[in-house]
Design a binder for these strands. Structure first.
Lengths: 415, 415
DNA sequence: TCTATTTTTTCGAGCCTCGAAAAAATAGTG
DNA sequence: CACTATTTTTTCGAGGCTCGAAAAAATAGA
């Protein structure tokens, strides 16, 4: 069953703890780290001395902290930007974007490309991803050896182990093992993440007060996606990335969904569904491939101006989202929700019906206390999430590795 | 944030690990424990020597193991039944049952009572629980001091911390802090658990091969409940016991549910709902308070005999359960399901419509691979779950405590 | 009785964390 | 400007824990 704790695990975990404390706090002193981790000063001293010796952390000048207190000034510890780098690859509908990020979290290079993802062949799609990564890696300003991790994100379903895309609305092809492909090509560990999960991670990173242990990130875009954090952990399905909120059933035998089934939440609340209803097309009408953000904004403007089919379309979207959230809340209890994506900008049109629907459900008793936040731009969020995730991997798996000799100078006599 | 690992934690966790290994394996030798925990023989030897010295474990005679191998015979380690005892209290509709269980898991006493829970006053209900516990504690055969934990289970919603019942269908009263009440009364740590969660725990204990990391236990009774294990952990809501599968919305504005809302899964699949549909009453008809098991069995018999309203009622139940499961599977992916309770005996009537409905949902792609198991009797399961939970608490919190001096003989020179 | 085999215990080495004390580095103070 | 108070950081020895190797224990077969 579960395994006992070895003695070596102790140091490993505490190393990881120190690195995590520095990443979260920015420039904490050793004393601060001791306070947040609960470890003793001596232990922190020993571990940080190791980490500085290994080039993972750096001491910042006392002046930067600028304390006006008496006594020996604190020495801030920071992440050494050159200790490593990671790459993020975000693949969305007709769009591919890559960024290189240093160990301290700063973007040091990026590149973006428009593609026609819906019609590309499988090989072409994979080829574009590989090519854009290669171009970044060939950048003379970048030390290739320092790139320790590549995190891809895609809209759609990925497997639990974050190795492959299983299904995605942006391409007709399925089961593409992006992580393995990139690893084989470049020899750099890679993962294939779900876009909404990365949004959730970024939200927590941005605002840990609001998004801490339990919250929901919902992508209101062409499709409906969800990233869910429960009890401080990213929630994933047993086999796949899970959390397919958009494909919970809102109305049995209801409107036709892009996934081919009927009555999904997405079939009422996805951009194509709002579009379809606003145009008063049949619920059986085949979903359109894409609706531009500009068109969606125009729809929202029309809905705000007059009571007509546009307004009704947003109302239906709100109702579907509300009942869906209500069912979700029956399972997990209410939690803060962030609405992300172009339709989040039209949340004023969605919210009334959404709240009314929630009030009809088990979550309704807390209807008032449920708070919504909106963020119209999902792409930066997804990239931030990927970066955070990749850097966390480096922190934990590369710089606090399982049972492996630590590089060089094994001692304390570095200072 | 999260806290570093102290040196003392190491031993604590490994002690817990050893106890857990013994509880799971029954009579394992030290060598076996070393293998399952991954710790060295020396460590296991030291820890088990401590545990035996403290009276937590006992050595069983070599003969019992009865190996025919050459070499020094293995000495089996077992839980000392007298090391502690726990009590389970299961409160269900019109029925209260208590059991006393020794540290090795054997029932050593029990008592049951019929009540009229729906009409009792709050004080009377609490009073009955306190009284039945007191009677068991006054049993001269029982050493009161050895009782280390009381686990209550109730149908309904409990809080995350397992202290209080928040709402239950078996009584009109709400927010009863049973755990605190019993602790104050008897000075024994207590918890208030959700019945379906205990079912899930018992299922895993009974059949860890089938029910290991991810599975679902659904109670098909007067109401519909669910216990959910995900990634090896019991799933609870953020504030309450959560997993209110029965109150996911099947049809917006649909049939009247016992909870007062409309369209819940339970409003189609609970006993009262099947009864209501079988009698061709309106979906708006007030749910009846109780339907006897005998009546439900008669309904099932009628449904099997002829195609009529009874059969249709079960079909509707299956449909509601199927769409609900489908939505659940969209979130967590499919997992093995156990159907528990009186209507599980009529699962043959439910299954076709259920599978058909699931096939319409995101879970449909795996429709074939989803397997259902049935267990008509929920009470023993709930009790077993409580016992397992209470004993696990004793294992971890009492016999492998945080940072606390271990009792007596601190040494290895006990043998 | 002796040997092979398997389980369990013992023992010393190597780490790790901790608390206390020392060292380092600064701001006030007269 | 020397001295003191104060705060941070490092050093050092003590105490624990786990591990591997070797020893001890306990049995079956020859």
């Amino acid at each position: 069953m579960s395994v006992g704790i070895r003695h070596d695990d102790l140091r490993r975990r505490n190393r990881a703890m120190v690195i995590a404390a520095v990443r979260r706090a920015g420039q904490p002193s050793r004393t601060e780290i001791a306070a947040t981790t609960g470890l003793s000063h001596s232990t922190i001293s020993a571990i940080s001395s190791d980490l500085i010796g290994e080039g993972i952390l750096t001491e910042s000048k006392p002046s930067e902290v600028g304390s006006l207190k008496r006594g020996r000034p604190q020495v801030g510890l920071g992440l050494n930007p050159e200790a490593a780098a990671v790459m993020t690859v975000v693949l969305s509908l007709n769009f591919l974007s890559v960024a290189v990020i240093d160990y301290a979290g700063q973007v040091i290079a990026e590149e973006q490309r428009r593609l026609d993802t819906l019609t590309m062949s499988r090989d072409a799609l994979v080829g574009e991803c590989v090519a854009i990564v290669r171009r970044r890696l060939e950048d003379p300003d970048l030390d290739v050896r320092s790139v320790a991790r590549i995190a891809l994100a895609i809209q759609g379903i990925t497997d639990t182990r974050a190795r492959a895309m299983l299904w995605s609305p942006i391409t007709p092809h399925t089961d593409i093992a992006f992580a393995d492909i990139l690893e084989d090509e470049f020899g750099i560990p890679a993962t294939m993440e779900n876009d909404c999960n990365m949004m959730a991670i970024a939200l927590r990173w941005r605002d840990p007060d609001r998004y801490r242990d339990d919250f929901i990130a919902i992508l209101l875009s062409h499709g409906i996606g969800m990233g869910l954090v429960l009890k401080g952990e990213l929630f994933t399905g047993t086999h796949s990335s899970g959390g397919e909120f958009g494909h919970m059933i809102h109305r049995p035998h209801g409107a036709l969904c892009r996934c081919g089934r009927r009555g999904c939440v997405e079939a009422y609340a996805g951009n194509y569904a709002i579009w379809r209803n606003a145009r008063q097309m049949s619920e059986d009408a085949e979903p359109v491939a894409d609706v531009s953000d500009a068109d969606m904004r125009a729809l929202a403007t029309a809905a705000r101006e007059r009571d007509g089919p546009e307004r009704e379309a947003y109302r239906k979207a709100g109702e579907a989202l509300g009942y869906g959230l209500g069912s979700l809340f029956a399972l997990i209890d209410p939690a803060p929700v962030a609405m992300v994506g172009v339709s989040a900008a039209a949340f004023d049109l969605i919210e009334p019906a959404l709240r009314e629907a929630i009030a009809q459900t088990a979550g309704g008793q807390h209807s008032q206390s449920i708070s919504f936040d909106t963020e119209p731009n999902e792409l930066p969020l997804i990239r931030e999430g990927c970066a955070t995730r990749a850097l966390t991997f480096v922190d934990q798996e590369i710089f606090a590795p399982g049972t492996q000799a630590r590089s060089g100078l094994g001692g304390k006599n570095v200072a």
